[in-house]
């Protein structure tokens, strides 16, 4: 176990190094922030001053060295526009994103897994066919469209849920979150459902195909021959053998939801990381983009690390070495 963790940490460092290099190269050739910062009719001297202030006059390798050194201290530079530390901005927005992602993931697990189990166990039933039709719809409809339809229906037509924004924020265990207030929950529902819809469909299909495979196995039959009730056969014996791919996809989904909620956050004007990224790209704010991408990379490595450890709890045949 210890060796596994050390190996993973080394891997993390390698991944971060490569990502930082790519990030640096791309952000260096992408747009020139100087012209966004100075007056429209700035003099040559003013431009030079800004260039020097941003350190853009030094050769690229030196710039990279400085970038790396600062990044190691968690310092990605100040946002050109807000004049606030980039990482701080991201961390400030992170809880908002995490909120809708966690609710979306809980939704997709609590709906997707049971529906997948049942439709996999009784593939010929009407219920199962209905679930499959729903999941195809869920996969093929784009989330931004669903988001807009739901805003139209629930917020404008029925008027039961707010149109956009984050709503009231309360504190749970010292963390500011809208999960603490009723008004906050009302705001969370629609964006979370929008995020969850595609994932629910994926998880249903994955669980279903795994269940169909496992229900044919001898150990399922043997469990039934022992007199194990149907429900326990499905959600115990068969499901546990189905979980490995589901957990893998679940981890990946969690990562990509946190990293790329941009569309949903834009539609619902949700003040999360995704919205911040879009704004940063529009104004070519290099520090924010760089910090964002590195942050996402660390997060993915971390999530995969957790998923790998979960494997061992699910399937004893898997050895971390």
């Amino acid at each position: 176990m210890f060796r596994f963790i050390v190996k993973r940490l080394i891997q993390l460092v390698l991944v971060l190094f490569v990502v930082s290099l790519i990030v640096f190269v791309f952000t260096s050739v992408m747009g020139n922030p100087v012209y966004l910062m100075v007056r429209e009719n700035a003099t040559e001297a003013e431009i030079q001053a800004v260039v020097q202030y941003l350190g853009l006059d030094k050769p690229l390798p030196v710039q990279y060295g400085i970038f790396l050194k600062n990044a190691l201290h968690g310092n990605f530079g100040k946002s050109y526009m807000y004049h606030l530390p980039a990482l701080g901005l991201i961390m400030e927005r992170f809880p908002a994103t995490l909120e809708i992602v966690v609710v979306a993931l809980l939704l997709s697990a609590s709906l997707g897994i049971p529906l997948g189990v049942l439709s996999g166990a009784y593939p010929k039933s009407k219920f199962s066919q209905g679930v499959m039709a729903f999941s195809i719809a869920g996969i093929s409809m784009p989330s931004f469209w669903i988001g807009m339809v739901m805003i139209f229906f629930f917020s404008l037509y029925l008027g039961v849920l707010p149109v956009s924004g984050r709503g009231d924020v309360g504190t749970i265990l010292g963390i500011n979150t809208s999960l603490a207030t009723v008004n906050g929950w009302q705001h969370i529902i629609l964006p979370s459902i929008t995020l969850a819809l595609g994932n629910v469909a994926t998880i249903i299909r994955l669980t279903r195909s795994g269940m169909q495979e496992n229900m044919r196995q001898d150990y399922v039959r043997f469990a039934r021959a022992k007199g194990v009730p149907r429900r326990k056969v499905l959600f115990g014996h068969a499901l546990k053998n189905t979980l490995i791919p589901v957990v893998t996809i679940f981890g990946l989904q969690m990562g990509s939801l946190i990293a790329f909620t941009t569309i949903t956050e834009t539609i619902f004007a949700w003040p999360g990381m995704g919205k911040l990224l879009i704004d940063a790209i529009n104004i070519a704010a290099r520090p924010i983009i760089a910090a964002y991408i590195l942050f996402v990379a660390v997060m993915f490595v971390f999530i995969n690390f957790i998923v790998d450890i979960l494997y061992v709890f699910i399937d004893p045949r898997i050895d971390l070495q």
Binding site: D218, Y219, K240
Partner: peptide
């Protein structure tokens, strides 16, 4: 080889 469930002791 296949009658016992691989994920339970």
């Amino acid at each position: 080889m296949t009658s016992l469930n691989p994920v339970y002791t």
